[in-house]
Structures are given as C-alpha cells and as structure tokens.
Amino acid sequence: MATGTTQTSTDYIGHHLVNWSVGEGFWTFHLDTILVSGVLGLAIFFAMMAAARKATSGVPGAFQNFVEMVVTMVNNQVKDTFHAKSELITPLAITIFVWVWLMNAMDLIPVDFVPLAMHAAGADYFKAVPTTDPNLTFAMSITVFVLMLAYNFKFKGIGGFLHEALTVPFGKWLFPVNLLFRIIEDIAKPISLALRLFGNMYAGEMVFILLAVWAGAGFLWVPFASLLSLGWGLFHILIITLQAFVFMMLTIVYMSMAAESH
C-alpha cells in the first residue's frame, strides 16, 4: 500500500511536470505553452482591442471601464518611473502586466482539470500554466533585453553607450573592470527577470500538485488538503498579481535606465 502510493505519487508529480511537445532536441516546441499563452493573449488583447476601438469619451461601459482602470494604473507607474518620451513603454508595460497576470491566473484552475480535459482530447501531457515554462519567461525577458539595448542606442547613441559602458562606475582608467561589470549587470537583468517569474509560478504550481497528492493519499486527508489548497489559492491570487506587477515594474525600470544616462 505504502509503496504503491509512493509510486503513483511520483508518477503523478512527474506527469504534471512534462510539457506536451513535438520535435527533437532544440527544435522542440512545447505545444501546451504556445497554445495556452497564445489563446489567452489573443482572447484578452482582441477583447481589449475591440473595447479600445469602440472606446467612447462619454460614459464608458463596464469592460471599457475595467480596461481603462488597468491601463491607467500601468500608465501611472510608467509616468512615475520613465521620464523620457516614448510611445513604446506604456504599451509594453500593459502587455506584460495583462498577459503575465492571465497566464499566472491559470494556476488558480485546479491542477488536474486542464490536463484531464486535454488528455481526453488526445494530449498525453499538458502543463496549463505557461509561466511555469522557462521558455516563455526567457522569451519575454530576452525580448525586453533586446528592447533595452535598442533604447540604449536610441537615446545615447553608440558613442554614448560605449562611453557609459567603459567609464561607469570607476572612471576611464579602469575600463576593463567597468566593461565587465556592465556586462554582468546587463546579463543579470533578463536572467533574474525570467527566473523570478518562472521560480515563483513553478513553486506555486508545485504546492498545488503536492496538496493534490496529499488529498489523493487517503479519504481522511481530503478535507485538510482541500482547506490548504483553498488557502494557498487565495494567497496565490496575491502572488500572481504581484509577479505580473514586478515583471512589469522591473521592465519599466530597466527601460528607463536604458533611456537615461547615469
């Protein structure tokens, strides 16, 4: 009995941590990540697009009001942090906050619902929360990194960028150290950005999975595990919002650092 439970638990956890994928080696595509993130993104951004297209300066409808609320919140953060003029930063921040929040929110769906449904549809493995896939978080952070580099060149010029990279923080005579510091600093940004989101969501998902295993261990454990799962779910509402906000906020900060010489 005990060994049997351990065996199935391991299987169960392992099963939950494998992506639904096609392809070999590097050319592997995680279909679940691509599908869920794409569907969520398309749904919310096309809905927002429809709302924006119909946006009236008169009394806004419920959805327009909600979108405006979110957008205004993001825009206020941008205005507080990013002082240069840019048409990109606010849309970038909005995209990150809304999309990441929605993908994180997939975590609130009970861990087995989506995999079971997809299993019935023919997919052997399915990870429902795209932000637990490092491919997604790194894709976002590297895109932000590229934009950051582009902003460095756009606002400072190549000369200004090189000058800053070589002379800050220790002055021009220590330029190799400065350059090394700069490289480490800039590389650390996308890595920390991606791993922070991935780690938080992966860990949160893991707790849900473990609670589900506990509930499966015996009839008596179900109430305890359910209660804890509810508590963790409520707490997770905070975490998914916080992580979306942190990703957005750090992106704004990095972009503003790229745009302003320091």
Partner: peptide, 20 residues
C-alpha cells in the same frame, strides 16, 4: 530551453504590437 522560446518571443512581440 528550446525553440518554444522563439515561438513565445513571436507571441510576445505580436501582442506588444497590437497593444501599441
């Protein structure tokens, strides 16, 4: 890390473009 990253970068870019 695999080619999913490229696909996700495309999604991300596409959504940024729509928003912008």
């Amino acid at each position: 890390i695999n080619a999913t990253l490229l696909a996700q970068a495309l999604w991300f870019g596409f959504f940024i473009w729509i928003t912008m």
